[in-house]
Simulated scan of single mutants.
Amino acid sequence: MSRALVLQSDFGISDGAVCAMYGVANGVDSSLAIYDLTHDIPQYNIWEGSYRLLQTVSYWPEGTVFVSVVDPGVGSDRKSIAVKTASNHFIITPDNGTLTHIKKHQGLLEARIIDETVNRLPNSGESYTFHGRDIYAYTGARLASGVISYEEIGPSLSMEELVELPLTDAAQTNGKVEGIIEILDIRFGNLWTNISRKLFKEFGIQYGDLLEVSIESSTRKIYQNIMTFVRSFADSLVGEPLVYVNSLDILGVAINQGSFAGAYQIGSGSGWKITFKKMKELPIKKNNRE
């Protein structure tokens, strides 16, 4: 019985790269169900590729095979690997940090190095620049269709050997909750932090509370303002900044019907720090004549 095959890359869809991957998978098994996670990962942005897997994988049926190709090191000595997650999904990808978020938040059961002598598109041996087509889509399709078993992908790889990106944990400190802007909600310009609703609850934050929100890049403070922690966007006015819990049970910051990231030119990653401090009441501005 075939499993679903889900593709992710930074290729975009303006040329034939993604279509070629579809063609390779279809050539393995024309009945295989193939889906797209996204092909709009910013070029070479391994961090975002890692996060989008975390955002998506657990919502698919067990046994689904994911192929993730954000591969600035294609053709180098970086490994090509396949992993089985704790949720019983499979991911085919370069070993360059793409599995960082999945490993930390969902867990991995085992990893294997892809044996390219047998798991490579026939007659592609002299091509070293499109492993997404020649190795990952081909191996992913063979695994998803049952042509090969997971064990036939190649030799085992120790979990400790996997390449990981540095992650920063959110924490309570000095009467504040501190974390990072881990990713952007691209379509709407919202900021998704690495601060869980559980941590906020432990800090004593409740819906309706006023929060002082500060955002810093690696070089300077970008933003500081007071916002309300709301249950939904309907609890705020259009154009008003707000703090909310997103679909992954993580704290987000937004402008109701506006782009927060666009308005303040804010990015994401470990260099973007965000801090929340509970306010007892709004500060009163003094009259300049007093």
Rank of each mutant, 00 (worst) to 15 (best):
F233I: 11
S87H: 11
A82I: 14
Q265F: 05
F90H: 08
L282E: 11
V238A: 00
D249R: 08
P94L: 03
L210P: 09
G262H: 00
A111M: 10
V238E: 02
K277R: 13
K103P: 06
F229P: 06
I34G: 13
S156W: 09
E48G: 01
Q43F: 02
S87N: 12
D36I: 13
K79A: 14
V230Y: 02
V28T: 10
A263I: 00
G267S: 04
N225M: 04
G12E: 04
S217A: 01
S58V: 13
L237M: 14
V74M: 06
A86V: 04
G252Q: 00
G125E: 08
Q172S: 08
D209F: 01
F203Q: 04
V177R: 00
Y35I: 08
I186V: 12
T38D: 13
G132E: 11
E152A: 07
V213E: 07
R52G: 03
G175P: 11
A254M: 06
D134Q: 01
V24F: 02
Y128I: 07
L37Y: 01
V83A: 14
L99P: 12
S31H: 15
E178C: 12
W60Q: 11
P42A: 04
G73K: 05
L54R: 05
G208Q: 07
L108G: 05
E281M: 15
S30W: 11
N190R: 02
N123C: 09
V213N: 07
S232I: 03
N246C: 01
S214T: 15
R133I: 09
K286I: 07
T85D: 13
S217M: 05
K277F: 03
Q257W: 14
Y51T: 12
T100F: 01
I102F: 07
I181A: 02
E202Q: 12
K273N: 14
S236C: 12
L99C: 09
Y244C: 00
D71G: 09
K278D: 01
G154Q: 10
G73S: 14
I195T: 03
L109S: 14
T117Q: 13
A263P: 06
P283F: 03
H39L: 10
V118T: 15
K198D: 15
G271S: 04
P166I: 06
A171R: 13
M279D: 09
T168K: 08
L121F: 06
Y44N: 13
L162R: 00
M159Y: 08
E290R: 15
L211C: 04
L199S: 04
E110T: 08
G125D: 13
G258C: 05
N287P: 11
L7N: 01
C19A: 15
I250Q: 12
K84A: 12
P94R: 00
I226M: 06
